[in-house]
Design a protein around this nucleic acid. Sequence first.
DNA 1: CATGAATGAGCCTTCATTCAT
DNA 2: TATGAATGAAGGCTCATTCAT
Lengths: 212, 212, 212, 212
Amino acid sequence: MDAGAPKFRRRKADRPAEIVGAALAVFAEKGFAAAKLDEIARRAGVSKGAVYLYFETKEDIFRAVVGQAIAPNVATVKAMVAAHPGPLGDLLRGVVAHVAKLVETTPVGGVLKMVVAEAGNFPEIARVWHDQLVSQALGVVTAAIEAAQARGEVKPGSARIYAMELISPLVVSLIWRETFVPVGAEPFDIPAVMTQHVETLLCGMLTEGARV
Amino acid sequence: MDAGAPKFRRRKADRPAEIVGAALAVFAEKGFAAAKLDEIARRAGVSKGAVYLYFETKEDIFRAVVGQAIAPNVATVKAMVAAHPGPLGDLLRGVVAHVAKLVETTPVGGVLKMVVAEAGNFPEIARVWHDQLVSQALGVVTAAIEAAQARGEVKPGSARIYAMELISPLVVSLIWRETFVPVGAEPFDIPAVMTQHVETLLCGMLTEGARV
Amino acid sequence: MDAGAPKFRRRKADRPAEIVGAALAVFAEKGFAAAKLDEIARRAGVSKGAVYLYFETKEDIFRAVVGQAIAPNVATVKAMVAAHPGPLGDLLRGVVAHVAKLVETTPVGGVLKMVVAEAGNFPEIARVWHDQLVSQALGVVTAAIEAAQARGEVKPGSARIYAMELISPLVVSLIWRETFVPVGAEPFDIPAVMTQHVETLLCGMLTEGARV
Amino acid sequence: MDAGAPKFRRRKADRPAEIVGAALAVFAEKGFAAAKLDEIARRAGVSKGAVYLYFETKEDIFRAVVGQAIAPNVATVKAMVAAHPGPLGDLLRGVVAHVAKLVETTPVGGVLKMVVAEAGNFPEIARVWHDQLVSQALGVVTAAIEAAQARGEVKPGSARIYAMELISPLVVSLIWRETFVPVGAEPFDIPAVMTQHVETLLCGMLTEGARV
DNA sequence: CATGAATGAGCCTTCATTCAT
DNA sequence: TATGAATGAAGGCTCATTCAT
């Protein structure tokens, strides 16, 4: 049989990913409670019953959607650490460029929105996102900045706040894209935002001797 | 006060505001769909039926909640414009301090979260927030920065992006407070964040001659 | 207002009993799983939603139905003990006549059928029925028979089995009525059955000196 | 046996019986509606689809389960008639001993429970059981008792009720076993029950001249 | 024949909304 | 006005049945 021939029934192994993909779209658009399983199933191209062959409950699907977005990003964060041992500027420029690209090719924006929106109803999801992803990323950057401060590269000030300042425009760009662009707002060009931001912020953070 | 006036029952004129207040809390905690009218009524101290004496539908209450948060903030924005004709640094320091205070004494954080979360289900709310509040505020700051650029105070670069960079940590602080602090994350001290941020960013934005 | 005037809405206090009554009929007829809440509500003269104002789940209704049939019968059993201190014959004749009447004016038949049918799915209900009702009743009669044996009134043999022999035709009459009469079987006249049975069995149980 | 015959897979001819056996267990445990085809198939050691190769519907399986329990018992009843032409005592002792054994080595208990439980949903099953089995058996015993009454062996009274009295403890023993023993009730020793019962009841039924 | 993934009708349960009091 | 019991439409989930393999 032709290996590329499309089968009437797709392989079982593909289904969960297809359902999670459809669910991500619906959850991001409607929120957890307003998302209807009928619609998730329809967008996944399966019947409502089929969804329950792979997931126990609607909450299960939600957890799967939010959970799957963690691992790859955690990996990215880990990679960032090792990447740039040199001066802070190089590190941040590299990291931010990398993340900005990631964010544009990945549905993190929608998932982040879901995490924020449903934190009250799914605190354990907020906790996992914080513990495994957000505070990890923040911690890595914070550590790099502290190291740079120790080397005299960065002015005094809270390294954790510096790290947050650095990341904020990225987060806001995502929220902007998810929230206001669909109703007609002018989008932000995320790479442009981050490039300008890193240069400006670095210029403000670095001691005179450390500026490139 | 009239001696015969009932003392134990607040005047009916207060009811709508009480309901909106209760609804704000519930919507912010649960989201629109997961919020129950029973709970809103209970927290407002009225019966479920009474809510319908003042609002047509649940959506109506939601619109009232989100809408009421616009006017005072718009006023703030307007005030910002007129306030500081002098050098950009003074303007931004003033504005940011003002907004940071506002944000701590006001439930804007929760409302913002609701707007973001329900943008897909209530696009007209997202639109109103964008048109009347967010893009206005952004526009005002952008204009001030453009003016400063024209005066040679600020380095080249997109004024709109500079404005967004400036505001971002505030937004992220709010989201952090609403999302991650309740599950154990270390909070950010919003005034401290904004103070450090404005100084750092200004230092990076301003031309050498303009630095204070 | 006229005390007998029918109200459009019946009083809240009556509802649970009405629902339990309707549920008893439906559960007895269809069994637990095949009973539909729609039908219970319809027969109770309320909407489906109203049922959930008084009961948490369908199982709850079932437990209420089965549970309500215990207390009055337990009381009957207790009363039986104290009633007849004299010779066994008088006691049994009295008890059996009483119970036979009870059984005809009460839905115990249907409830018994439900308990039997759903014992596998609701073991705790079977347990409660056994512990509080069935084995109590059996125990009381057994004790009376043992006492009579001690007095030399009753022939040797297991008193517990004697007690069971005594009650059995009543149980079978009920099952017969619930199961086969609706499909055309000739009914048993329960008082007639029990009268003949008690006389026959007594005649077989009693020692020659004790026969009346 | 053919050397080429497959050894590990039972012949397909056995499948229906295996399915009916598994279904009997599940139906008896859960009732018709709560029994799941998945579980029946699993216990039968076949796939869910395979069940539908042998039975049209779930109801079909149920009918097969209940129906298969009729024929052998009917045969037993017929055999009983011809067996004992002598005095009633011998007949009843023989019949009861036979049936008591049958009942312990056969799943009639469970099937009876199913018939009772589902009489409301499957009236035709209740009818068939009544017409072909229960009322036949009752009729046979009734006729024997009437004949004995005509011979002056048995006291006056309804022969049909005498027959029912005779059988009742057996039925109740079965119900007891199915319902209360699984939740901790002390079981009844069915042969002991029936032996004691027959002797006691006979002693009460028979005229003085007929007692052995 | 046999499998088990897929289907979709049906039911329990929730909750925004109504309305008699 | 105010109440809260009542309604009924809607949605999550189950499971008997089908069908491509």
